[in-house]
Design a protein around this nucleic acid. Structure first.
Length: 570
RNA sequence: UGGGGCGUCGCCAAGUUGGUAAGGCAACGGACUCUGACUCCGUUAUUCGUAGGUUCGAGUCCUACCGCCCCAGCCA
């Protein structure tokens, strides 16, 4: 549109451009390196779109690489879901699927090389001792007694480590860098540890496993990665990343670039938190529609197009940020608005009887499936004497500017006639409204209205005789809204004290509302699981996999924007 | 009080070598409307964390200060 591409793109693209300007001829090569220890979430989508996007836009390639160097946390269950999610998002790694574990032997060989050149040594101090010797943020660390062991001794020990002679934790291979470095990561970091654990791919072939800081730069180098993009917390690790590449004498090295991870308002995306929700049964599973996992939002009904658009709009930078979820919802509405077919369903039905409409008559009205796409055609919607309309579309004593149905007031029934409410029937005991007795104006039929009448409101409806019973699930944030967080006042100072502290975030008790008395037009009977629709005036819905033949279930993906409810509050 | 980052409108975010603050979301007006949706116009930073300095001119350069994030796993 008018954006004109804003020229530069993000700062990483700028780095790529500068590299080329300086003569770097290499084809751009990135990689998405998830650890298979959990499900992907929206935050990962940003990284996926960034890495694959950069490759695509620069005529380069992007690999998928599982960073599986810690057998105690990883599982194939996760690698399958991760691949499914990336494909669903719309990206393809073609034949470039790798595992860090594919390089275990190579990592090992390079480690021996480091030992040979005196750049790494075996340290048999305990974890506690190593920690103590590392120093603190302010105090430098101290070199340990093993630092000056001979190459022969180190090599021998390392080989014995590999052959399984020692128990977990007995010793480690460390890089010999600088115990006094102000960067803790450079104080002789651990490169290899002993882990007698079965790896999801290599089984029991190894009992020593490389650390991320050692394996990652080598993996990148081996795959010919040019730009290794990761999140901000690894910024301090970059000197170590470069040290490894340097110590091994690699040329044409990859360059690590860090960006700020995504945070969404009122959404927690840590694997720890998501896992807890699943394990504590707070949600139905990793794909519960309230989860911020990709499988969760997929089931909620979000589209990959919307997610990709969102990732593009939030930009990429180094400042920690908190993106308003409203932007995500905007992207979802924009995508769905253009393609979801419109149908009518009533969430909270209230009966309407058209007293002047013939008892046994049924008219099949042709109503367009999409106002902006005539080619989408129409469906036939049955119209009869008894109908149901939305509870919210009637007010016994209407407030000002209420353009819907009220005693003595007219509204148009979408695609049908204009009706007028003449009588409100209530249950004598409860006083609840049981029925609205109305009259319709035969001259106002949609498409052939000669009445000249004009009404301000049009509402959706469903024929009582033909209505399809459905369940609708309406979702809200899983977390208690920020404003509702308990806050107490310090009696002395008047300062605010957060009651909910660091502890567990409060969950929203209304995160799921299941409405089982909903009625939909018969057209929806043919809907398939996964199909999305716009329920006129209510929002976008997707047929959920929990549906049964007799009881279709629809998740509300996102509501329509509603300026009325806002105005109403004033 | 060591090191590494970051601070441009309520939320994201552009701002090439200093030349006089893009865009999106949200919000608010209004038009349109057989979805109070969509669309459509219009409004919203004399100001870029603060204070100085250099300069004809600074968000962009210099100095100092303030604030926020990350780092002491044999996790990634």
């Amino acid at each position: 549109m008018s954006t004109e591409n804003s020229g530069t793109g993000n700062f990483i693209q700028t780095i790529i451009n500068e590299g080329r300007a300086q003569g770097d001829q290499r084809q751009i090569h990135t990689r998405f390196p998830p650890e298979p220890n959990g499900y992907l979430h929206i935050g990962h989508a940003k990284s996926i779109c960034l890495n694959f996007g950069l490759a695509i836009e620069n005529g380069g390639l992007c690999n998928l690489r599982f960073d599986d160097t810690n057998p105690t946390k990883e599982d194939t269950e996760y690698v399958d879901s991760i691949m499914e999610d990336i494909r669903w998002l719309g990206f393809d790694w073609e034949n470039r699927l790798f595992y860090a574990s594919d390089y275990f032997q190579t990592f090992y060989d390079f480690a021996e090389q480091l030992i040979q050149s005196g750049k790494a040594y075996i340290c048999s101090h305990s974890p506690m001792e190593i920690k103590a010797l590392r120093g603190t943020l302010k105090e430098p660390g101290r070199e340990c007694s093993h630092r000056d062991s001979s190459v022969e001794e180190n090599l021998s020990l390392f080989r014995r480590m590999k052959s399984g002679e020692f128990p977990d934790g007995r010793m480690v291979l460390r890089a010999k860098i600088d115990m006094a470095s102000p960067n803790l990561n450079l104080r002789d970091p651990v490169l290899y540890r002993i882990l007698h654990a079965s790896h999801h791919r290599t089984g029991d072939a190894w009992c020593i496993y490389p650390m991320y800081d050692y394996a990652h730069p080598i993996s990148d180098y081996l795959e010919g990665i040019t730009h290794s993009i990761c999140t901000l917390e690894f910024e301090d690790h970059r000197p170590l990343y470069d040290w490894v590449l340097d110590a091994l004498g690699f040329e044409n090295r990859p360059r690590q670039i860090e960006f700020a991870r995504l945070n969404l308002t009122n959404t927690l995306m840590s694997k720890r938190f998501l896992r807890a929700l699943v394990e504590e049964g707070k949600v139905s599973g990793w794909d519960d529609p309230r989860m911020s996992t990709l499988c969760g939002v997929r089931r909620l009904g979000y589209t990959p197009e919307a997610l990709r658009d969102f990732c593009e709009r939030i930009g990429v930078a180094k400042a920690n940020s908190l993106v308003d979820k409203a932007l995500l919802e905007h992207c979802v509405r924009e995508d769905l608005g253009g393609k979801a077919l419109r149908v009518m369903a009533v969430l909270k039905p209230i009966k309407v009887v058209l007293t002047n409409y013939p008892e046994n008559q049924t008219e099949y009205l042709e109503i367009e499936l999409h106002p902006d796409h005539p080619e989408a055609g129409c469906r036939k919607v049955p119209f009869t004497r008894e109908l149901f309309i939305e509870e919210d579309d009637f007010m016994e004593t209407p407030v000002k500017k209420f353009f819907r149905l009220a005693p003595g007031q007219e509204v148009r029934l979408k695609g049908a006639y204009i009706i007028c409410c003449n009588e409100v029937v209530k249950d004598p005991v409860s006083g609840m409204i049981t029925e609205l007795r109305c009259t319709y104006d035969p001259d106002t039929k949609s498409g052939s209205d000669h009445s000249g009448k004009k009404v301000k409101g049009t509402i959706h409806w469903v024929s009582a005789d033909h209505a399809l019973s459905i369940t609708a699930r309406l979702y809200e944030d899983l977390l208690q809204a920020q404003e509702e967080m308990a806050v107490t006042m310090d009696p002395e100072t008047g300062a605010e004290i957060e009651t909910e502290k660091e502890g567990k975030p409060a969950l929203n008790p209304n995160s799921l509302a299941e409405l089982t008395n909903c009625l939909a037009e018969p057209y929806l009977a043919e809907a398939k699981v996964g199909e999305r629709f716009q329920f006129l005036r209510l929002g976008y819905f997707i047929k959920d996999k929990d549906s049964t033949a007799e009881r279709p279930v629809f998740n509300r993906i996102v509501s329509l924007k509603d300026s009325w409810s806002k105005a109403e509050k004033k």
